[in-house]
């Protein structure tokens, strides 16, 4: 087998193993199912009445933000999975096998796409129940979901790298929240970026999390006519901006993480 074929084989085998684990660890399934439902309900009913969005209902505005937030938080799952693998005996098995050095990480980020698809499905259903609707075309909506998954995939690689820097599974959760919280909340996920004060607004406008949220809103048709055009370039071109960031993140963090893994493997 050529080395490219064996690499894909190895990645698929590791990803398959991770997917089996998702279905077999009840805690994980509960987390996949319940946390998106909880977030949708929490924001829709707790903040829904106190935040006013011009020309639309807050719930309509909210769902894309929740999607973005949930896939961001889902990346901690990638980190935790890798940190756990590194601690368990199975990693010595992997290292002693003639498998591709990138397969453990690439397999994990790939299987987490499955995880994200599951949680997006759950969130969509919950969203539909509380009044969210897709008002654009089906193709646009699919593009919106694909964009969310692409961005989530990129963030998975960041967390894969972070997981290899920290000493244990316990640390990874705290470490990832340090990265994920500001990125998720200083953004247009829950409130319009324009409503934020000066420096925060600038950060929010250039934050890729805002762009992916904005892109999803546009593609789901959740931006009512008459909403003022955003002034910042990233929010005017959210699809390109999101794709650009996603590619850049993978291009930087995948090699970093794989290198780090190979080094760690050498003790």
């Amino acid at each position: 087998m050529s080395s490219l074929v064996t690499t894909f084989n190895d990645i698929a085998v590791v990803a398959h193993r991770n997917v089996i684990k998702i279905t077999r660890v009840p805690e994980v399934l509960v987390f996949v199912l319940l946390s998106p439902i909880m977030f949708v309900l929490l924001f829709a009913y707790v903040f829904g009445n106190s935040i006013d969005i011009q020309g639309t209902s807050y719930r309509e505005f909210l769902i894309a933000g929740i999607f973005a937030q949930t896939v961001m938080f889902g990346a901690t799952f990638t980190g935790a999975g890798i940190a756990e693998d590194m601690q368990k005996g199975i990693i010595d098995r992997f290292r002693s096998l003639p498998m591709s050095r990138s397969a453990v990480l690439a397999g994990r980020t790939l299987s987490d796409v499955v995880y994200n698809i599951l949680s997006i499905i759950i969130m969509s259903i919950t969203g539909l129940l509380v009044g969210w609707r897709i008002r654009g075309s089906v193709i646009d909506a699919i593009a919106g979901f694909a964009l969310l998954l692409l961005f989530a995939y990129a963030i998975s690689w960041v967390m894969a790298y972070v997981a290899l820097l920290v000493p244990s599974v316990e640390v990874i959760n705290n470490a990832s929240f340090m990265v994920i919280f500001p990125l998720t909340f200083v953004a247009n996920t829950f409130v319009p970026a324009e409503s934020l004060p000066g420096p925060l607004r600038a950060f929010a406008e250039w934050n890729p999390v805002s762009a992916v949220t904005q892109a999803a809103r546009e593609l789901f048709g959740n931006i009512p006519t008459g909403t003022p055009e955003p002034t910042a370039w990233p929010l005017q071109n959210p699809v390109i901006y999101t794709v650009g960031w996603s590619i850049a993140i993978v291009a930087v963090f995948a090699p970093l993480a794989i290198n780090r893994y190979a080094k760690k493997a050498k003790g």
Partner: peptide, 29 residues
């Protein structure tokens, strides 16, 4: 060309015995 068995079991605890061996076989190509 080698096989290794360590001090502690280097298998995935969540997978079944069969799944573990199958996975290892696939990773040996």
């Amino acid at each position: 060309r080698i096989g290794l068995s360590g001090q502690y079991a280097a298998v995935d605890e969540v997978l079944t015995a069969r799944e573990n061996l199958h996975m290892i076989g696939r990773l040996y190509h």
